[in-house]
C-alpha cells in the first residue's frame, strides 16, 4: 500500500494545477510583458529593456521604492518588537489568558478597508479623537492628508496594528515550547533574568524569529490597500509604494509594460529575501527525499 501510484499524483494534481495556472504561468508571462509596450487594447510591441529603463528613470518609481523601504522596515521591526514582547508576556504568569489572547488577535479578523476606516476616524483632522487629544495637550496634529511623511507614518501604524496578531502568534507558539527545565537550570546556576532571556530564551526561539522576520518582509512589501485607501498615493504621488505604483501604471494609465517591469522587480526582491530560507528548506527536504 505504500507504493506510489498514479492515483496519488492525481491527488496532488488539483492543488498543483492551481499554482501553475494562476501563479507560475502568470509570473512567467509578466516577464514577457515587461519586454513589451502594451496598453491591453492594442497589440504588444517589443521594446527590449525599454520598460525597465523607463521606470528606472522615473522619479515617482524611486520615491515608491524609498517609501516601500521605509514602511516595510518600520512595520517589520515595530511588529517584531511588539509581537516578541507580547509573546513573552503571555507565555508567563497571566490571568484570563484565553480572553486576553482573544482580544490581542482581534485585528487579524479586520479587513484592511475597515482598518483604514478605524484609524482615519481617530486621526480625522480637528475632530478625530487622537488628533483632538494631541491638540489639547499642545502638540501638532498628524497631517496625514497633506504631509507625505505623516501619511506614511499612519500607514505603518495601522499596518503594524493589523498584522501584529500573526507575528505574535508565531512567536507565542515558539516561546511556549521553550522547555521549563532550561530556564530553571539557568536560574539555579545564578543567571539573572536578563541573562536567561538573552542567552537561553531568545536563542531558542531564534529560528522562529528569523522565519517570522522573513515572512513579514515579504508580505509587508505587498502593502497596497492601506496606502490606496488612505491617500491613493497622493499628494502629488509622494506616498506611493511599489504595489500602488504598479496598480496605477496598469489600471489607471494602461501601461502594462512598465507595470510588469515593476512587478518583476517586486518578485525578484521577494525571492532574494526568501533565498536563505528556501536554500535551507531545499537542503532539508531533499536530504529526506526518498528515491
Amino acid at each position: 500500500m505504500n507504493r506510489l501510484r498514479s492515483v496519488h499524483y492525481a491527488m496532488i494534481a488539483p492543488a498543483q494545477v492551481l499554482l501553475v495556472a494562476f501563479i507560475l504561468l502568470p509570473a512567467v508571462y509578466v516577464g514577457w510583458i515587461s519586454l513589451h509596450r502594451w496598453s491591453f487594447a492594442d497589440d504588444p510591441v517589443f521594446v527590449g529593456l525599454g520598460n525597465y529603463a523607463a521606470i528606472f528613470a522615473d522619479r515617482v518609481f524611486w520615491r515608491a521604492v524609498w517609501n516601500t523601504f521605509l514602511v516595510v522596515n518600520t512595520v517589520v521591526y515595530g511588529e517584531l518588537a511588539l509581537g516578541l514582547g507580547l509573546a513573552f508576556l503571555m507565555a508567563g504568569w497571566m490571568p484570563c489568558k484565553k480572553l486576553i489572547i482573544a482580544l490581542l488577535i482581534a485585528p487579524y479578523a479586520i479587513t484592511e478597508v475597515s482598518a483604514v476606516v478605524m484609524w482615519r476616524t481617530m486621526f480625522e483632522p480637528d475632530i478625530g479623537m487622537i488628533n483632538w487629544a494631541l491638540m489639547q495637550i499642545g502638540l501638532d496634529q498628524l497631517e496625514w492628508s497633506s504631509d507625505p511623511n505623516h501619511a506614511l507614518f499612519l500607514v505603518a501604524l495601522l499596518s503594524i496594528w493589523i498584522h501584529t496578531p500573526f507575528t505574535f502568534l508565531l512567536l507565542y507558539a515558539a516561546v511556549s515550547t521553550i522547555p521549563g527545565e532550561y530556564v530553571e537550570a539557568a536560574h539555579i546556576d545564578g543567571a539573572t533574568p536578563w541573562q536567561t532571556f538573552w542567552h537561553i530564551k531568545l536563542r531558542m526561539i531564534m529560528p522562529a524569529l528569523l522565519i517570522a522576520l522573513m515572512f513579514r518582509y515579504i508580505t509587508a512589501m505587498r502593502v497596497f490597500g492601506e496606502v490606496w485607501l488612505l491617500t491613493e498615493g497622493g499628494p502629488a504621488r509622494l506616498t506611493e509604494v511599489l504595489a500602488v505604483y504598479l496598480y496605477r501604471q496598469a489600471f489607471r494609465y494602461h501601461e502594462f509594460g512598465t507595470a510588469s517591469a515593476t512587478g518583476l522587480a517586486m518578485l525578484v526582491i521577494s525571492l532574494l529575501i526568501a533565498l536563505p530560507y528556501l536554500h535551507q528548506m531545499h537542503r532539508r527536504m531533499f536530504r529526506h527525499a526518498g528515491a
Binding site: 505504500n2 506510489l4 496519488h8 499524483y9 496532488i12 492543488a15 498543483q16 499554482l19 494562476f22 501563479i23 507560475l24 504561468l25 502568470p26 509570473a27 508571462y29 509578466v30 510583458i33 491591453f40 515579504i218 512589501m221 505587498r222 497596497f224 504595489a243 504598479l246 496598480y247 496598469a250 489600471f251 502594462f256 507595470a259 510588469s260 512587478g263 518583476l264 517586486m266 518578485l267 521577494s270 525571492l271 526568501a274 528556501l278 528548506m281 531545499h282 527536504m285 531533499f286 529526506h288 527525499a289 526518498g290 528515491a291
Partner: peptide, 30 residues
C-alpha cells in the same frame, strides 16, 4: 509517500508562496 517528484512539487509549493500576489493581476486581467 515520498519520491523525488513529490519532493520537487512540495518545494515548488513553498517557492510560489513567496511571490507577490499583485503581479498575477497583470496577465490575468486581460
Amino acid at each position: 509517500y515520498a519520491s523525488r517528484l513529490l519532493t520537487i512539487s512540495a518545494f515548488f509549493m513553498i517557492v510560489v508562496r513567496m511571490l507577490p500576489p499583485i503581479i498575477v493581476t497583470l496577465p490575468l486581467f486581460p
